[in-house]
Design a protein around this nucleic acid. Structure first.
Lengths: 251, 251
DNA sequence: AGGCTAGGTGTACGGCGTACAGCTGTCAAC
DNA sequence: GTTGACAGCTGTACGCCGTACACCTAGCCT
């Protein structure tokens, strides 16, 4: 609409500032990541993205086959931020480095968790990450068999996150209940879910209403990761094999 | 449109078969679950659901506040299928029973995994499940502290599923590559991702192209569950406490 | 008889992803 | 220098979505 006719007639325009640099897949992905970083994944639409890039929505389809491909590309972009492991590390540090680096990348982009969970792609970037992790285990003396099951057990933790079990994001628009009402609710809650309450009290060290009163996700993550790595190590030492596993009908 | 005027005038209609039984929340939820079971969660829209119930879309909003609430209700419906634990079980069997029962429920509804992951609700049904699990651990001698971290570590596995790491659902519409092309691709793949390939070969016992050639998810699930329960047991025996954990600055 | 209410209807709005048919500026081949 | 292919962008349109709002209707309570 606006810049279109600036370059018609009268030879080449002297300053062509009105002409955008041509789009390409990377610019599209970068803009999409930026938009999602700023407004959450659900605020990302092809139309808004196009607007952001000063372009008509259909222009995007020359660089990205559809919205699914866009999301795949965005996930790849985030996962591309994972740093390579310092060479010569033992298997345990290698795995930890890689996984914790993935975690940092994912935490930089709050929408990435959801996006990763919703994808079922095995792009080269994804496979690179898996390859690196698998190779670390193999080099550390894990059998291919054990490595396979160990990766399954790590599950989404290889992407640097575990599910948010308890933290419901606090809705700031929710009406603040009166103290009396709060009292009643807590009492009811405690009657019906005494153990959950006990745990919540323990986790928050007593002040349930604390502002950031969720769990320490970083601690939980590292706790689980170490627990798993210890358990894996034990299996490796024992020479575990699925063929000999009772679940598989083994000895 | 069709049945509307059947009951106008002429007193009470003799047979009122044209008048639907009035909707209610449970009927709405049941129909939604049915629709999702049949066509996947992405084929579930308020409009389709209304049509299924022989009603205009807006009628649903008298029973469900919006689509999010519908999804919450559907998840609750699935989780409501979890069977209670046989009383008197030790903590380990109790946890296993409950978790494996959740798994069966979720497997009955293929869309449930995605739906559960996308929810951030802590409905009574959800809390009931957590309470039961937490109580089992507590009764088994786990401290509230340890129980908390243990639940985090189980993560989504308390809902009976772990992420699909490798299984991309096979797209039947994808063009079948020629054997020669297949050969080339495998070679490239093996060069770039040798460990991943090795693992895939191991997991499928050699026949990579096998029809159901994915992983044995049930085995992976039970493997991980047992591994975790063993590790938890060890911590319990050792009297683990987060205060004494090195990550927490403890001794 | 009169009004209240729960449940169902009809219409409409603003958003979405994307198919399809142009247009236009660039550049290689002649 | 003309021509034609082609990559990149535009414009329009379609069918879908969730849901706000105003309305109607039947049954019930007083």
């Amino acid at each position: 609409m606006y810049g279109v006719q600036l370059s018609t007639g009268y030879g080449a325009p002297v300053v062509d500032q009105a002409r955008r640099a041509p789009l390409n897949r990377d610019r599209v992905l970068a803009a999409a990541v930026g938009l999602a970083d700023a407004g959450g994944i659900e605020s990302l639409s092809m139309r808004r993205l196009a607007q952001e890039l000063g372009v008509v929505p259909m222009a995007l389809y020359k660089h990205v086959s559809d919205k699914d491909a866009l999301l795949d590309g965005m996930v790849d972009a985030v996962l591309g931020e994972i740093e390579p492991v310092t060479p010569g590390s033992d298997w345990r540090t290698a795995v930890q480095q890689r996984v914790l680096s993935a975690r940092r990348a994912v935490l930089r982009h709050p929408w990435a968790r959801k996006a990763i969970e919703s994808r079922t792609s095995r792009s080269p970037v994804v496979l690179d990450h898996m390859e690196a992790l698998a190779a670390a285990f193999r080099a550390g003396g894990f059998s291919a068999d054990l490595t396979h099951h160990v990766l399954h057990t790590l599950g989404n933790r290889i992407w640097g996150f575990s599910p948010e079990l308890f933290d419901a994001p606090h809705d700031p628009a929710a009406p603040v209940p009166s103290p009396a009402e709060q009292e009643v609710r807590s009492a009811e809650f405690g009657r019906r879910f005494p153990t959950v309450l006990e745990i919540a009290v323990t986790a928050t060290r007593g002040d349930l209403g604390a502002v950031g009163g969720g769990c320490d996700e970083q601690f939980e993550f590292e706790f689980a990761l170490d627990l798993l790595l210890d358990a894996f190590d034990r299996l490796r030492e024992q020479g575990w094999s699925s063929a000999a596993d009772p679940r598989r009908g083994g000895a």
